[in-house]
Structures are given as structure tokens and as C-alpha cells.
């Protein structure tokens, strides 16, 4: 578990962002200097539909405290329909994780367009706060992966 100098818990959060909308939205948040917690680390994927549930489980397994997936708004996918598949897949996966007792606040899908820098920053702020409030992820971590 990571803590800062005030001995405060610092969550590890992986954000998967599609190249065309959300990653650009994250860039826009940067252009506008809209701050959000440094706990968020972004991984660029061509489309939200590239995100395999395995990546998300892998992140949790390796110690992530929250995973958020961002894509173009439904109807705006650069590849026409990718995010519609994402929506079904992640609905199913996250519902399953919650069924297994994993706090539902640890997972989220959010649609962020390339123009929504402010929404990106606000979403990340909010997500980081919610995950932080939950504390470290114990239920999905594989302890053997800790060094």
C-alpha cells in the first residue's frame, strides 16, 4: 500500500483512454491546466473496445485500487461501433465483479469526448476520491505478485 508523507493512503488507478476522444480529452485537460490527482495513470488504447477484461483484472491483480475506462460518447466512436461493444462488455464484467463482492466504486466506464477536458479532470478527481475513500483493494489483489 502506497502512502504519502502524511501517511495518507494513495490509491493506484489505471485509466484506459481511447485515442480519439478520451485521450484527447485528457490532453485538453492538460492544455487547460485542469488538475486531477497524480494517482491516475493513463494507458492509451486505439478504442475503448480494445480493452480486454483481462487487462482490468490484471491491473487489480497487480495492485490497482481502481480501474476506469473512458471512451467516446455512444454514437461518436471513431470506429462507429466500438464503444457500444465496450458498454456491453464492461457492464457485464463490472456487474460480475460486484457479484463477487468487489466494491462497485472501484470500476467505472465514462464517456469523455475530445472537447471535454473539464469533464475528464472532474471525472478523474471524483473517481480518485471515491477509490481513496474505499481504501486499498484487498479483494482482488494477488499477494504473490508483491515483491
Amino acid at each position: 500500500m502506497q502512502v504519502n508523507e502524511n501517511n495518507e493512503f494513495r490509491p493506484k488507478i489505471v485509466a484506459f483512454c481511447c485515442n480519439w476522444c478520451s485521450y484527447a480529452g485528457a490532453d485538453l485537460a492538460g492544455n487547460n491546466r485542469l488538475a486531477y490527482p497524480a494517482d491516475i495513470k493513463i494507458i492509451r488504447v486505439p478504442c475503448s473496445c480494445r480493452v480486454n477484461p483481462m487487462f482490468i483484472l490484471r491491473a487489480f491483480q497487480r495492485g490497482a485500487d481502481g480501474v476506469i475506462l473512458c471512451g467516446c460518447h455512444p454514437g461518436d466512436c471513431h470506429y462507429t461501433s466500438g464503444n457500444y461493444y465496450t458498454r456491453r462488455r464492461m457492464a457485464m464484467l463490472f456487474s460480475m465483479l460486484n457479484y463477487l463482492g468487489i466494491e462497485k466504486e472501484r470500476t467505472r466506464v465514462e464517456w469523455v469526448s475530445a472537447a471535454e477536458g473539464a469533464k475528464f479532470a472532474a471525472t478523474m478527481q471524483d473517481f480518485a476520491e471515491k477509490v481513496k475513500a474505499l481504501g486499498p483493494n484487498k479483494r482482488l489483489e494477488d499477494l504473490r505478485c508483491k515483491q
Binding site: 493506484k12 489505471v14 495513470k41 494507458i43 488504447v45 486505439p46 480494445r50 480486454n52 483481462m54 487487462f55 490484471r58 491491473a59 497487480r62 495492485g63 490497482a64
Partner: peptide, 15 residues
């Protein structure tokens, strides 16, 4: 954007 590439990124971030 191969599976193992993205997982390598995930691993590096979650280390």
C-alpha cells in the same frame, strides 16, 4: 497495441 504490450504497461503502472 498487443495484449502483452498493454499488460506490460498495466504491470509497470501497478508495480
Amino acid at each position: 497495441f498487443k495484449n502483452n504490450q498493454i499488460m506490460a504497461e498495466v504491470d509497470a503502472i501497478c508495480k
